[in-house]
Design a protein around this nucleic acid. Structure first.
Lengths: 344, 344
DNA sequence: GTTTATTAAGAAATCGTTTCCAATTATTGC
DNA sequence: GCAATAATTGGAAACGATTTCTTAATAAAC
C-alpha cells in the first residue's frame, strides 16, 4: 500500500503537508498543493482507513456492525439492504454477522465489533434483557435495535407494530366467518413473536371467540419444516381449523406445502394468511394474503437513527414504530354461513 | 477501550510483557504471567483488532470482503451464508458490499476493501475482463471469483456448470415433447448467463430443433417484473411456446405470475422450469421443477479457497466447477403426441 | 532598518499492538 | 568466588494517519 510517506517523498514535502492537502484544512501554498496533488494522483494514493480509525478513535471509524439471525431469511436480507444503502451514502462499510439466534454467537460478534472500533451496531436482540448490550451502551457504543425490542428502552429502536399486524390478520379471518383459526408461530423468546401471539389472542377475544390452545403451535421459526409439521398436526385434529395464520415467512412456506400434500385447496378448503411479503407471495397460486412488514424501510430507518446518534450522542432515546399492512390477495375465503359450527 | 497500557499498569509490568503473555510466546515467569492474567480478566481487556491490523499488515487482518450484486436475491444470500460460516470458524469478520451490478460501485468497494486492509475479496465479477481485479491481484490482494468467472483465469474461481444446468433443463423439456421452448434470461453481460444461453441453444440443436430468436427474451434479471413482461410477450405469440425455461429465480417468479394472470394452468397448459432452488420452489402449487445451484456450497468453497490462498500465496490457481442439479417436481408435463406441430 | 505580525511547512506526539534489542537478574559450572 | 550462560523483562521502533506545537521565512508596520 502506498502511504503518506511515499507521497511526501515524491512531492518533496513532509507528510504533515500532504495530510493537510488531503484534508484541505489550514492554508497550504497553492504551488505546494499542486505538487502534492500530482504526487497523489500519480501514485494512486488512498488513505488507509485502518490508520485513520486508529488515530481518530470513537465515532469516526466509518464502520457499522450488523448482527442478524440469518441472512438466508429474506426478511432479514431486506433489512440488511436498507441499512447498506444508507451506510453506502455515508461512506461507511458494513460488517455482517449471523447470530443464528445463539446468544453466545451474538456476544462473540459484539465483542469483535467493539474490537474493530465499529462506530455502532444494529441488531435484533436475542434476549429481551440485553445485559451485555446495556454495558456496551454505557461504554459509549451506539446500538440500535431493529425488528425486536429490549424490555426496557435503553437504546434507539425500530420495530413494527407486531400486535397490530397479528390482530388485523386474525380479524380479517374472523370477519370472513372463521372461528377455528390455527396459529403457527415461534416460541415467545423474542418480543416480536410474543406480540404477535397477543395480537392473535386479543383479536379472538375481542370477537368473543375463546382462545383454544389446541390451535396454537409454537416452534422453531427458522425452518419451513416446523411450519409443515404443525400444519399437518392441526389438519389432523377432529375439529380442524378452517384457516391458518402463520407468523413468519419460512413457516408459512411449510404450512402451504402441508396443505398441498393433503390435497386441500387454498382458499376453498382452507384459508391462510402469512407473514412477510416476499417476492414469491404474489406470484404463487393463489396469490397469498400476508402481513407485510416494511423490512427495507426498517433497515433504512435504523441506519438513519444510528447516524443521528453519532451526530448527537446525547439526544433523547427514540423508538420508531412502523405500521405493518395486511395485503389482501386470494388465499382467504368466506366460510359459508350454513356451517353449523360457526353459527352462534 | 481498555488498552495494553492499562493492563500493564495494573499488573505492574511493561506492555511488552503483557503482550507476550497474551500471545503466550517466549517464556514469561509463571508468577508474572499470573499477575497479568488477573489484570486482563479484571479489566475485561481484549485487544484492538484495528491496532493488530495496523501492526501486522498483509494477510493477518482477519477481515474478508464480499461484494455481491444484491443481498435481497436469495441465491446470493445463500452464497454469503456459506462464506460467513467458514469465516466465522477462522475468526474472520466479513465486510458486505452490494454492487447492484454497477461497475463504479464495484470499483468503489474494492478500493474501500483495500483501504481496510482486507485480507482478500470474494465476488462475482461484473465484467469479464476484470482490469482492476488484475491490478489488485498483482498488488498482492487475494481475490476469489464466485458464481461468475473472468475471461482469463487470473484468480481462483468457483462456479457452477451453467452450460450443463441449462442444457439439462432444456433437454428435459424436449424429452417431454416440447419443441417451442421460451427462454427468459439476462443480457449476456455475465459469464453465467452467457453460458446458460449456450446451454439452451446447444440442447435444442443437439435434438435437431432450430433456435428461434422469437422465443428468446433477455433483460434485467434483477426484477421479477421483467420475467412477467417477457412471459406475457411470449404468450401473445401466434405460435406460442408450450414451455418456459427461465434462467434466474426472480424472473421465474415473474413468469409464474404472468401464467396465473393469463389463467393458464401449470403444467397442463404450459410447462416451466426455473433456476435456483429456493425454499418457495417446493412449497408452491405445483411444486416447481428447477435447476438447483449449490449456492451455500459455492460460498463455502470460495471461502475455503481464500484461506488456502492466504496460507500458501504461491499455490497454483484453481478453478472449481460445481455441478448443478435438475430437481424434477411437478411443473412440467409431456405434450400429447397428437399435437401436429410437435410431430415431424 | 528594526520589530512585529503573518504565513507556510516541518517535527513530533498520538492511537494500540508486536517484536527486536538491550539490560538486568538469577543460575550454573569450574 | 568468579565468570559464563540462561532466564526474564523493559525500552523503543514500527505500522499510517492526523494534529498540535514550533520554527523558519516573509511581509508589514513604524
Amino acid at each position: 500500500m502506498v502511504s503518506l510517506h511515499e507521497v511526501a517523498k515524491k512531492a518533496g514535502v513532509s507528510i504533515a503537508t500532504v495530510s493537510r492537502v488531503l484534508n484541505n484544512s489550514t492554508k497550504v501554498n497553492i504551488e505546494t498543493r499542486k505538487k502534492v496533488q500530482d504526487a497523489v494522483n500519480e501514485l494512486g494514493y488512498q488513505p488507509s482507513r485502518v490508520a485513520q480509525r486508529m488515530r481518530y478513535q470513537k465515532g469516526h471509524s466509518k464502520l457499522l456492525g450488523l448482527i442478524i439471525p440469518d441472512i438466508q431469511n429474506a426478511y432479514y436480507s431486506s433489512i440488511v439492504r436498507g441499512v447498506e444503502d444508507v451506510a453506502y451514502k455515508k461512506n461507511y462499510a458494513l460488517i455482517l454477522c449471523n447470530s443464528d439466534e445463539d446468544a453466545a454467537k451474538e456476544k462473540f460478534y459484539l465483542e469483535v465489533l467493539k474490537s474493530e472500533s465499529a462506530d455502532g451496531v444494529i441488531l435484533p436482540p436475542i434476549h429481551e434483557q440485553g445485559k451485555l448490550i446495556g454495558e456496551l451502551v454505557k461504554n459509549g457504543l451506539p446500538i440500535i435495535c431493529v425488528d425486536r425490542r429490549l424490555a426496557n428502552l435503553i437504546v434507539d429502536t425500530v420495530v413494527v407494530d407486531n400486535h397490530k399486524g397479528a390482530y388485523d390478520a386474525t380479524s380479517e379471518l374472523i370477519k370472513l366467518g372463521h372461528r377455528r383459526i390455527g396459529f403457527i408461530s415461534s416460541m415467545p423468546h423474542f418480543s416480536s413473536f410474543k406480540e404477535r401471539r397477543r395480537g392473535y389472542e386479543d383479536a379472538l377475544t375481542a370477537h368473543g371467540i375463546p382462545v383454544n390452545e389446541d390451535y396454537i403451535r409454537l416452534g422453531d421459526q427458522r425452518k419451513p419444516e416446523s411450519g409443515r409439521i404443525f400444519a399437518h398436526e392441526l389438519l389432523k385434529l377432529k375439529q380442524k381449523p378452517t384457516a391458518f395464520f402463520v407468523s413468519n415467512n419460512l413457516m408459512t412456506l411449510g404450512a402451504i406445502e402441508a396443505i398441498h400434500q393433503k390435497n386441500l385447496k387454498i382458499p376453498d378448503d382452507i384459508s391462510i394468511i402469512g407473514f412477510d411479503d416476499l417476492p414469491w407471495a404474489k406470484s404463487i397460486n393463489p396469490p397469498l394474503t400476508v402481513v407485510r412488514q416494511p423490512g427495507y424501510e426498517m433497515g433504512r430507518r435504523a441506519a438513519e437513527m444510528f447516524f443521528q446518534r453519532i451526530d448527537e450522542p446525547d439526544r433523547e432515546l427514540a423508538m420508531v414504530l412502523l405500521e405493518p399492512k395486511l395485503v389482501v390477495r386470494d388465499s382467504c375465503k368466506a366460510i359459508p354461513a350454513t356451517d353449523p359450527i360457526t353459527q352462534p
